[in-house]
Amino acid sequence: MTIKKKILLIDDDKDFLFATKLILEKGGYEVFMAEDGKTGVEVWKSIAPDLAIIDMMMETWGEGFSVLNKIRATDTGKETPLFMLSAVDLQGPYNSFEPPPEFPKVNKVLHKPIKADDLLRMIAQELSGK
């Protein structure tokens, strides 16, 4: 039996975590969840996941980014693929949102809700490409 790849989900919406977890588990991943940034960073350190998905707008604008910074600053977090989630207007003027260049590397920016197929495909791509 192969060891399952670990994915960490950080989002302050319990239901969103749960729904996404179901999809990821169905895709064969082991899923860890954190409901706030601080816990997220702690879980990150203790389990060293293969990939993390971080919501951009937890509680306050920018909390997602600070989590991203902290994760990128850890030893295991330098190269690990990180996805950012945003719930901003699907077709709104923000849909072209890209993190500014000075931000730590984000492998993908995804809009909520995420199609199950797309999510699993992008994760598989990211994890096999390494």
């Binding site: 239901d15 969103f16 169905k26 895709g27 909520k112 809700p113």
Partner: peptide, 11 residues
């Protein structure tokens, strides 16, 4: 979230 649940349900 509802749409995400529907995605999960289908998946």
């Amino acid at each position: 979230v509802i749409r995400q649940y529907i995605e999960a349900l289908n998946e």
